[in-house]
């Protein structure tokens, strides 16, 4: 392994790591939003929306991100819907992640007995108060481990972004291997940068999980 090569490659990998983090964060935020909407549609049994979100969840959970991205990036332009690779990557991540997030929220909401909602309402709390101070704090605490796992899962999934010509870490690694045959250096930096992204999130995640583990403590 050559130190000089590592030093040369460092800025290239740093730049693509930044892209991975930026698009990943954006995609995850959107995924959380989609997840909240879908689980709300299911929790409140909204007609039509409930069925739509159920279909979406099945479609999204049972197909790989790579195939979803290929369809978004190469398929949709044929119908005149042309998107730029970054938008496509974020949209793909949100499409995939939305269903995982929805399932995480749903399991949290289901774990809180509906009797609690009814009791809160009969005590004179408004709908918003009952959700905000009774149901959601407990549901969130129960969903937290799944949410953290989903965030890490989605960050790892961004590794397929190179397939839609986004210059992420995988793209840079493959490109440099093809250009200079410095395979060992490229792969080392690839692993190091993924660790730099994923390890802090993983540690932070378990801290947050521990902090929020209060649901069910009284039972």
């Amino acid at each position: 392994m050559s130190i000089a090569v590592l030093r040369d490659y460092l800025p290239l990998f740093a730049r693509s790591a930044l892209l991975t983090v930026r698009l990943g964060a954006l995609g995850i935020l959107l995924a959380v939003l989609v997840g909240v909407l879908c689980s709300a549609a299911q929790y409140f049994r909204l007609p039509v929306l409930q069925q739509l979100s159920a279909v979406y969840i099945e479609l999204s959970r049972n197909t790989p991100l790579l195939v979803q991205l290929f369809f978004l990036y190469y398929g949709l332009p044929k119908l005149g819907i042309r998107t730029d690779p970054a938008v496509c990557g974020v949209a793909g991540l949100a499409f995939l992640g939305g269903s995982y997030m929805a399932e995480a929220f749903r399991s949290g909401l289901e774990a809180v007995d509906r009797v609690q909602l009814e009791s809160a309402l009969s005590l004179g709390l408004t709908n918003a108060q009952a959700m905000g101070s009774v149901i959601l704090p407990q549901a969130l605490s129960i969903s937290m481990p799944a949410l953290v796992a989903n965030v890490i899962f989605l960050l790892k999934e961004t590794s397929v972004f190179s397939a839609v010509s986004l210059m992420d870490l995988m793209f840079t690694a493959k490109d440099l291997i093809g250009l200079h045959y410095n395979t060992v250096e490229s792969l080392t930096l690839l692993v190091v940068f993924y660790l730099l992204i994923l390890l802090p999130i993983s540690i932070l995640g378990s801290l947050v999980e521990r902090r929020l583990r209060y649901a069910g403590s009284g039972t």
Partner: peptide, 19 residues
Amino acid sequence: RIMPQLVLLFLVFFGTTRV
């Protein structure tokens, strides 16, 4: 579990050839 599966694929496919 911390590594994306694609990274593991690269390590085995390209890495073992080289090393």
